[in-house]
Design a protein around this nucleic acid. Structure first.
Length: 218
DNA sequence: GGCCAGGACACCA
DNA sequence: TGGTGTCATGGC
């Protein structure tokens, strides 16, 4: 499966290294990972700005807010009622099981930390892997809608694979490297978000010659 | 005014 | 196990 590294190298050459995740602290990564579920990042930024102004970017403060106060702060990110509940559930778990320490949760053996995250309501596989990789600097590859879309176009996926199948494919064929996983996911997002949907298609698309979408539409 | 965005979950057959 | 409805805001 050298195709995966070939694709990575092309994206890296074209876009250059990205600095990810767009957050100032590991805890902010968690907040962003939950708020960005099926939501445009611009809306997430508005919500995080509100939390920052309210000095509510910590587990203790989020737990001490009323659910209504938290809902209003994160309202721009959409789905604000369920996301407010999810944020408080995560913070409560952190408090009860790890003395409020995100580091203690994330420094456990990878599979154990991942399973613990997945047991929390509102933390699915993509959110868990984003937290592990970008907040915990643990080698857990993040799969998202862009990953499935892009690699289906490249013929590497069929489009019917489940989340864990895709994650395991990448992890089986790539070096076990936090830096590589970090960069690869970031490059997939920047490629799909800013370039791959442009019409007319970007003439210097780094994957142009191997992308089925480009070939069908050119 | 419709479509979409860096998902997850409940419910049903 | 797979398909479908729900959750909600803001930019284009």
């Amino acid at each position: 499966m050298t195709d995966l590294m070939q694709t990575y190298n092309r994206l890296l050459d074209h876009y250059g290294p990205r600095v990810w995740w767009p957050a100032k602290t590991p805890f902010e990564v968690v907040i962003g990972a939950i708020l960005t579920q099926n939501t445009n990042w611009n809306n997430v930024e508005k919500a995080i700005t509100n939390l920052r102004r309210a000095e509510a970017l910590s587990a203790d403060v989020i737990l001490n807010l009323s659910i209504e106060e938290l809902e209003q702060l994160i309202r721009p990110s959409g789905f604000f009622r369920q996301k407010a509940e999810r944020l408080q559930l995560f913070c409560r778990h952190l408090h009860q099981s790890h003395q409020g320490s995100l580091g203690k949760l994330l420094e456990q053996p990878l599979n154990r930390a991942r399973e613990e995250l997945l047991q929390l309501k509102g933390i699915g596989p993509e959110t868990a892997d984003s937290i592990l990789l970008y907040a915990g600097k643990r080698p857990s590859f993040v799969v998202d809608a862009y990953t499935g879309r892009l690699f289906s176009r490249l013929g590497i996926l069929t489009g019917t694979e489940k989340y864990d199948q895709i994650r395991e494919l990448f992890m089986a064929h790539l070096d076990d490297s936090v830096q590589l996983y970090n960069e690869y996911h970031a490059l997939i997002v920047i490629h799909c978000k800013d370039v791959c949907r442009k019409k007319p298609l970007c003439p210097d698309c780094p994957l142009g010659d191997i992308c089925a979408y480009k070939q069908q539409n050119s």
